[in-house]
Write a protein that binds this DNA or RNA. Structure first.
Length: 421
DNA sequence: TCTGGGGTCCTAGGACCC
DNA sequence: TCTGGGGTCCTAGGACCC
């Protein structure tokens, strides 16, 4: 028996915690460059603004003057996310955070009957203590729990925010009412080809012969089918997930042509990636760097490339990783092109592995580790990039545009890293 | 004018080996 | 002139998720 707790309209709800004037209004939160809509209030959803909608296309759906558009403040969202899951973690077992706003957990079967009160109480408690509305769905598998959660969210008044999708007859009825494209694991492409075969609902899909699902689609889709039938296929790794890759990338605020400016960005991405590796006590075996032009500018010659380099010794120290990232960048850099996006990725990650010293090790890793720890602790206390590597002191031309921070919110400076020294 | 960022898993096909 | 077959490993790319 799986439970799924999911925060409603999470980023918008977070903004509302610190600015109640946003309640009842059409509010959207925008992605990094104030580019796309990544969260919508119910009012914004009702107005027809789709997820992923580019900000400048909002006017195609509704009067943009009535829509409050906010730049994302992910640090704040993660903070509130931790608070929510801390509360949940105290009342359930095997909590697995699946994303910033949702987590699965398990429930022993005998608990089912007695738990509705507890769970409805939990929903209330989270709203009271953190200010975030959540919904909880229960079902025999994760894929069904997703559907249950959706119902809990949609019919909040009836369900108290908690819905149990347990009885086989109930599951049958719900699957008949679930459009195929709403099933977790079935995206646009697969939904379209299933519809070509007249598979319109989850119930239709369940009736499809497994052999056809396997041969014409994939083992992944077969697992989704089994999950809908109530067979647990462990779609999510049940152990606390160690990252296999860690990436930092950004679309620049404008098109860049200068090698130094982009190198500046690369170094700062490397810093962030290395920091995250250290936070997870992991080391990376190789580093990948990519650059690309602006895919929407047909007037500019397009160039896109990537380069992956092994590290001589797996590492998580900023200087080693920044150095290797710059080396990779220099290999793929081409003069005369325009660049809009770049990123640094750590691969071949090994968890908790101590840095191994080699005969050819050019560094004293003991010293390096102490240095990194010091930098991390300074940055923890004084803002995330108080101490940084020299190449990234240049200018920050690459910085994304974010012009819509909610100035009414008391937490603005705290959560955008714009604290005064 | 303005189109995100960060992940996972699976598969097909090439390189290489015996 | 004939030009195997089976296995592994790696990579790129496609699909999905939030």
């Amino acid at each position: 028996m799986y439970g799924l707790v999911d925060c409603n309209n999470f980023f918008v709800s977070c903004e509302r915690v610190f600015d109640p004037q946003l309640n009842g209004k059409k509010v959207v939160v925008l992605s990094n460059n104030d580019g796309c809509v990544i969260a919508r209030s119910n009012e914004a959803k009702a107005a027809g603004i789709p997820m992923g909608c580019p900000a400048f296309k909002i006017k195609e759906h509704t009067d943009p003057n009535q829509v409050i558009q906010l730049s994302a403040r992910h640090i704040m969202y993660h903070d509130l996310s931790n608070r929510v899951f801390n509360i949940v973690g105290k009342e359930v077992v095997n909590l697995q955070e699946y994303s910033v706003d949702e987590a699965f957990f398990t429930l022993r079967h005998k608990d089912v009957k007695t738990n509705h009160q507890t769970m409805a109480g939990l929903v209330k408690k989270i709203n009271q203590y953190v200010g975030i509305p959540v919904s909880i769905g229960f079902a025999p598998t994760r894929t069904l729990a997703k559907i249950a959660n959706h119902i809990a969210k949609k019919d909040r008044r009836i369900t108290d925010g908690v819905y149990w999708l347990i009885r086989p007859e109930a599951i049958d009825i719900i699957l008949r009412r679930t459009p195929i494209e709403d099933v977790w694991g079935i995206g646009r492409r697969i939904a379209a080809s299933l519809k070509n075969k007249r598979i319109m609902t989850a119930a239709d899909f369940v009736k499809m012969p497994a052999s056809i699902v396997r041969s014409q689609f994939s083992v992944t889709l077969l697992r989704t089918q089994l999950e809908l039938m109530g067979h647990d296929c462990q779609i999510v790794n049940p152990v606390t997930i160690a990252h296999k890759t860690i990436m930092t990338s950004r679309t620049f605020g404008k098109v860049l042509t200068s090698r130094d400016e982009i190198a500046d960005a690369i170094v700062s991405f490397a810093e962030k990636t290395a920091r995250q590796l250290r936070d997870e006590s992991s080391v990376a075996g190789s580093i990948m760097v990519f650059v690309r032009g602006d895919r929407f500018r047909e007037d500019l010659p397009f160039y896109s490339n990537s380069c992956q380099l092994r590290l001589e010794i797996p590492s998580n120290d900023t200087m080693t990783i920044a150095q290797q990232a710059l080396k990779a960048f220099n290999i793929i850099w081409r003069d005369g092109f325009s660049y809009r996006k770049a990123g640094v990725m750590a691969l071949d990650i090994e968890k908790g592995k101590a840095i191994q010293l080699s005969l050819f090790d050019p560094y004293d890793h003991g010293k390096l580790r102490r240095l990194m720890t010091s930098i991390d602790s300074i940055n923890n206390s004084y803002g995330s990039r108080s101490v940084k590597l020299a190449p990234s002191l240049i200018r920050g031309e690459w910085k994304p545009n974010q012009n819509h921070f909610n100035s009414a919110s008391q937490t603005l400076h705290f959560y955008t890293g714009m604290l005064n020294p």
